[in-house]
Design a protein around this nucleic acid. Sequence first.
DNA 1: CTGAAAGCGCTTACAG
DNA 2: CTGAAAGCGCTTACAG
Lengths: 351, 351
Amino acid sequence: MPHSASSLPKLPKSHRATGRVTLSDVARAAGVSPSTVSRALRGERAVDPALIERVQAVSAKLGYVPDPAARALASQRSNHVAILIPLLSNALFVDLLDAAQKTLRAAGYQTLMGVTHYDASEEEQLLREQLLHRPAGLLVTGLDHNPATRQLMHSSQVPCVHLMDLPVGGISDAPYCVGFHQTEAGAAMTRHLLAQGRQRIAFAAAQLDPRVMQRLYGWRSAVQAAGVYAPTLEFLNPAPSSLALGALMFEQIMQQRPAVDAIFFCNDDLAQGALMAALRLGIQVPAQVAIAGFNDLTGSDQMLPPLTTVRTPRAHIGEAAAQMLLTLMRGDTPAAPQLDLGFDILQRQST
Amino acid sequence: MPHSASSLPKLPKSHRATGRVTLSDVARAAGVSPSTVSRALRGERAVDPALIERVQAVSAKLGYVPDPAARALASQRSNHVAILIPLLSNALFVDLLDAAQKTLRAAGYQTLMGVTHYDASEEEQLLREQLLHRPAGLLVTGLDHNPATRQLMHSSQVPCVHLMDLPVGGISDAPYCVGFHQTEAGAAMTRHLLAQGRQRIAFAAAQLDPRVMQRLYGWRSAVQAAGVYAPTLEFLNPAPSSLALGALMFEQIMQQRPAVDAIFFCNDDLAQGALMAALRLGIQVPAQVAIAGFNDLTGSDQMLPPLTTVRTPRAHIGEAAAQMLLTLMRGDTPAAPQLDLGFDILQRQST
DNA sequence: CTGAAAGCGCTTACAG
DNA sequence: CTGAAAGCGCTTACAG
């Protein structure tokens, strides 16, 4: 039979057809019902292996891709994973985001990013908005949230993994989280300085978020244990962390009498600024004063002298947290609810 | 009548009820049809102002929030805006993302971030995935994309604004974009160095993405115009940009004979690394060699000496591009398809 | 200006 | 193991 008008593809019968290849198209072409296609494609058990193969082949041939909106509406679960981080201006959180996002995308999830600016009510509002998208999972920075936020996380039933922090006390009712012990890290670096013979070790911090405060507690416990604690050794500034602020704090601290012989900065950007200020002022590091940082950020190894710091496994945290979330979203139980990824003291030349 | 069983709230009649407050709930409570509620809430014209008010009041009282998935499915448009950036490890793009995301969120849009790693086919794949979510708009870095990507952007009909770059030639068939002229910026800094009496100005670059290459062309045209061009003054390294690489390149360049008297780095991180290397090597900057950077990244003002660089309006670009996209998504036409946000030469002490 | 009806493209009890 | 049917919660021609 020659080509005739009636053999041309029919116009879409619906007045709202979108041109998309749908589940029904696949079903028709494979000679099965839409339900079966749906099950086969999602790898649901209880479907004939032979059918699975046929459906997959037809689906590939037609170039079928499931519609996320339809899927979300029908199943009440999207392929979004919401992630809440405090700031994009801190490389730490960007590394976390980058790693998590990479892992999640490889598993077919879209990352929905929310920036809280360390503001509990902004965090709450952000979470509310993200929950509207029925995320399949939640990644949130830290363990400190206001009651409404905690309530939202809980009542939404969405699997959730916390980043960076680990609960201090017992494991009772503990949430899923991957990170390291901030307090221990703070104490470890302080002990390292003590072991190097430093006696008047200042702790200098900005931003003062919960993790910074934990490092402070770690420092306190270590200097107290060594009997060299003094309240005047604490320099706490709530302003955002930056090289410029580090330089400023360094100058102030160096005017302190009796003089300090070491400064432990809560973040590398502050320490880098201090190192630059020392160069400008002609203050010898570490001869006159030792300087230590935290996080091993970009550039710390290039300082003069290179910065002694705490290497934190942030990329690893982002990836492992995403993996744990993937496990939870699959309905499985992670090996352990808490994952401690530890930290390293990176001895370079500034101490 | 006393409380009786029959006055208790009825169980949901559907076997799949979600407990969510829906459009129909609002319609019922307001005594109008769902269609009217839908129109009233979206501010569609052609609905009685009195009704709008009533519907809004009822909606607020019931705490109704539209379901994004249902809305996306029915309207074929989500409230997502997809953004494509090359890297998260370059502060430049993070600033772009931060600004755009902030502006978009304030207008009710969710940002879907995609990281291309400067890989054209990864970009294409990412765009494909994002398009599945039927984004309301698209923000993409640069103007260089492979044919398939361009085709996708075009055939999807999704409003799109390009970031950072501006088309070089005429305005013919030009896409929407906000940025500045990279080539001009490269030339301007070079002329600045020439005006300071420098004669052998090297251009040192890493990553070699299209924008870096444009700066190179700007440098070339300026040194050629001054009659001081030499191919041996070009130091191009495709590796990712970093302080460490900058230090390395600096050492190599300083071994060059005849000696250079200035180095223009295509990005501040390279220049910062060079400055640190100069300190280590005891090379006087700018006495022996001038060093200039690009972008005015964090820390450049804290270097020793502070780094002369080109200040680029990246946060402004992110915000303005988002605004332009908002205009397009509204169905309006931006004042001009291209927005040139310019740049500044920031003379500090390294030149 | 308003409403009834159909439809967006899936998933999921339910029945077999 | 498979299918018919209902439903997820909206929007949008169409008719009035």
